[in-house]
Design a protein around this nucleic acid. Sequence first.
DNA 1: TTGACATATATAGATGATCGATATATTATA
DNA 2: TATAATATATCGATCATCTATATATGTCAA
Lengths: 115, 115
Amino acid sequence: MAIDKSLLSGSTTMLVLKLLDGQDMYGYQMIEELAKRSDHTFELKAGTLYPLLHSLEAKELISSYEKDEDTQRPRRYYQISRKGRKLLAEKQAEWITYSGAVNRVMQGGVSIADA
Amino acid sequence: MAIDKSLLSGSTTMLVLKLLDGQDMYGYQMIEELAKRSDHTFELKAGTLYPLLHSLEAKELISSYEKDEDTQRPRRYYQISRKGRKLLAEKQAEWITYSGAVNRVMQGGVSIADA
DNA sequence: TTGACATATATAGATGATCGATATATTATA
DNA sequence: TATAATATATCGATCATCTATATATGTCAA
């Protein structure tokens, strides 16, 4: 099912940081990994991700390095910084607050499954 | 805690329709009711709500009528339409899919409370 | 009674996140 | 050798929300 793009708005940064919290990744890999982990609910577009990565790097939430896997086109890997992990924790707390509040409002008759 | 406004993006329509699913309401009342039911996580701004109500009415998802409670300034009440209830059900299903997917992605080490 | 604040609705313009379109280059496959 | 997948990048459009501003009424305290 394709999800209204505006729903995703605001949580993309959190999701990207979370991916990098597990391991260093390059852009294209994040797009695929996010699709995989979310059963294709999230299909992040390249036009969204790359500018986002650049802006996260400018804010020093992540850093990057090139890695040559010869025979492969060189890939730009990203790693999360200490500052990035701090923001991730904040975003995660925010998400819990936000989704909990939505569920409370929606609990006016129809039951909401939790995940 | 103030929530990143972009997180709310996309679910405002669903929340408004849900409020009207319970009873007819006027704009200002929705702002207060939403704040109350969400423990002030949501503080919808008038500049967001009124244009949204107008556009929902234009799409025939809701309709409105004026009601004079004398001694009070007349209030414009909104009621959800059949079409609106249908959209509400869809948005609700989307929310379940979306929040479930976010939680799955975030389940990579740190536990996420569910509401 | 006057001023301040809450109630109530409304609109214009700014901001910010995402997307679609487009571009480039390499690698794998048919 | 052409096509698709991999991989990164940028621009402009779109859309939702917010801030600021406006108007008008009701209430309460000084």
